[in-house]
Design a protein around this nucleic acid. Structure first.
Length: 559
RNA sequence: AGUCCCGUGGUGUAGAGGUUAUCAUAUGGGCCUUUGGAGCCUGUGACGGCGGUUCGAAUCCGCCCGGGACUACCA
């Protein structure tokens, strides 16, 4: 590879990560690029994780390198097979292709064990009998140095023996740990004789019951990277203080050392990114599951109808830096709309049907109009939409006493039924409670197709469906899950900010007949209403649509 | 309080000693429209502060202020 090629100057300009990598390559510190995404399988991945996935994948791709998916499965009590499966699925769906390189840290446990023995032999690690509480007390705090454990100077042979017996299951959980011998007075707390192994008698989702001692992150992570030949180990900013330790282990062991570089994790307004909190939402049934369309998870967004390409676009537009940041949820929605506007076929559907009787059409009247599938893409063709004497319009599209700036249907007012006719409302019929039950209207027969021969204009074009030749559907309308920009601002209070109206279910929607072709996952635009995705809960004859995002709306916005 | 990191429009981001300080999103106005969509035009809006270096500083240096991470047998 010729890293002096000017094309790498361009890459270097994209963000500080690529810039650092180009510098490393040109200085000869590494001769290739190999990245990884190392999730712990303790939950579904969310949009924040997606940033790490996408950036690691794209950087490898840009430099002609490789990208690994690796499970950092070092804590069996928190990890599950379901999460392993979901992560593999979601990473692939997102578009980050690891070319089948799926690894498990737990497959490296033997090697890690051997290296731990090396460290013991070098007098750089020891078995500690202190309890968790005692260790914590000995650690000191931010301003005061820690104290050495009484077991710190155990002879090498004894450490070796004890460590082996820990591995063999001779001790209960918590009885002993293996620690690195560094410096209990180090200003960086992470360097105060960090733990390397703890005893956990629990089955592991990948390794089974092979082990009862498990490596801790700081000890394990660099080794995993080293084993896989990772060149640049990019992680979020909270690991910055861990980098000295990452380096320390690899240097003491004398093995290949990748470079850890930290970037700021991404927050998105009106949602949360903490896996612990997301888990709580699922556990307490505040949402229907990890894939609830309101969740910031990849599975949730997929079900909601967000295209992978839109998420990628969002991630790229959000950029990479080290500054704490909160990306506007509106940017995500904007990316979703942009993608869907290009790709989603249009359909007409009525969420809240209001019957319209076209009185100057004969009983049993039926005809068809051609409708454009996507005005942004003529190649998507047209379809037929049936029109009959009775149609449904959106209840919101009629006002008996129209307010200012409302220019849809009202008594005596003429509007266009898209693709069909110009329609004028003659009267509204009400029930005993005063609720409007139907509209009596007439159309201008000369306006077939939507334009009157005299060229007169109407202020509004409305969507509609035939009352008799339409199909029923349920629509699930989603709003932001939280009512405040930063729900996790105060520790533990995020549940108080849950939006009680984040889900609204409409069960009596009507869609034009073409909707019968929709299958779970298909995305459409319901004209004037927004983008919708067919949900997996759909049944034959009963479609369930998730509203992905509304259309931009300058009418309600102005109010 | 100790160590480390970070401060550019509301939000996010570009900027590498000389620019009318980039772009996106959001927001105001207008045009166009058989989706109050899309598109097009346009307005508002930022270098945390103070010193220093320099002919010249968002950019280099110092101090201050502000924000973040770390005190798990989590990752």
């Amino acid at each position: 590879m010729d890293w002096s090629d000017p094309k790498y100057d361009e890459l270097a300009k994209q963000d500080f990560l690529r810039s650092e990598i180009v510098a490393d390559l040109r200085a000869g510190r590494y001769d290739r690029v190999h990245t990884r995404f190392p999730p712990e399988p303790n939950g579904y991945i969310h949009i924040g994780n997606a940033k790490a996935i996408w950036l690691n994948y794209c950087i490898a791709r840009d430099f002609g390198g490789k990208f690994n998916l690796r499970f950092d499965d070092t804590n069996p009590v928190k990890e599950e097979k379901e999460f392993i499966d979901s992560i593999i699925r979601d990473v692939a769906w997102l578009g980050a292709d690891c070319e089948g390189r799926v690894f498990y840290a737990s497959d490296y446990f033997q090697q890690m064990y051997d290296w731990a023995r090396d460290l013991i032999n070098k007098g750089k690690a020891y078995v500690d009998d202190l309890s968790a509480d005692e260790i914590s007390q000995h650690r000191g705090n931010l301003t005061t140095p820690g104290r050495n454990s009484p077991w710190r100077e155990r002879p090498v042979e004894e450490n070796l023996d004890l460590f082996e017996r820990m591995k063999n299951g001779e001790f209960p959980d918590g009885a002993k740990v293996l620690r690195a011998k560094i410096d209990m007075a180090h200003p960086n707390m992470n360097m105060r004789d960090p733990l390397m192994y703890r005893i956990i008698h629990a089955p592991h989702p990948h390794a089974g019951d092979k082990w009862c001692i498990y490596p801790i992150y700081d000890w394990a992570h660099g080794l995993e990277d080293s084993i896989e030949g990772i060149t640049h180990s990019m992680c979020s900013i909270e690991f910055e203080n861990h980098r000295p330790l990452y380096d320390w282990f690899l240097i003491e062991l004398g093995i290949y050392k990748p470079r850890q570089i930290e970037f700021a994790r991404m927050n998105v307004s009106y949602t949360i990114m903490s896996k612990r909190y997301l888990k709580m939402l699922v556990g307490e049934n505040r949402v229907s599951g990890w894939d609830d369309p309101r969740m910031p998870t990849i599975a949730g967004m997929r079900r909601r109808g967000y295209p992978a390409r839109a998420i990628q676009d969002f991630l790229e537009r959000a950029g990479i830096a080290k500054k704490a940041n909160t990306i506007a949820f509106e940017l995500l929605e904007s990316c979703v709309r942009e993608e869907l506007n290009r790709t989603a076929p249009r359909l007409m559907g009525v969420l809240n049907p209001l019957k319209v009787v076209v009185e100057n059409l004969p009983e049993g009247h039926s005809e068809e109009f051609d409708a454009v599938n996507n005005p942004e893409d003529p190649a998507m063709g047209t379809r037929k939409v049936p029109f009959t004497r009775e149609v449904y319009i959106e209840r919101e599209d009629f006002m008996e006493v129209p307010e200012k700036k409302f220019f849809r249907l009202a008594p005596g007012r003429e509007v266009r039924l898209r693709y069909a006719y110009l329609l004028t409302c003659d009267s509204a019929v009400k029930d005993s409670a005063g609720v409007i039950t139907e509209l009596r209207c007439h159309v201008d027969l000369a306006s077939r197709g939507g334009n009157a021969p005299d060229g007169r204009k109407v202020k509004s074009t409305m969507h509609w469906v035939s009352a008799t030749e339409s199909v029923p559907a349920e629509a699930r309308l989603y709003d932001r899950l939280f009512t405040v920009e930063d729900p996790s601002g105060e520790e533990g209070k995020f549940l108080e900010h849950l939006n009680p109206d984040s889900l609204k279910v409409l069960k009596d929607c009507r869609l034009e007949p073409a909707a019968t072709n929709l299958r779970a996952g298909d995305r459409v635009q319901l004209e004037r209403l927004g983008y919708f995705a067919a949900d997996q809960d759909s049944e034959p004859g009963r479609l369930v649509l998730n509203r992905t995002v509304t259309l931009r709306d300058s009418y309600t916005k102005g109010k």
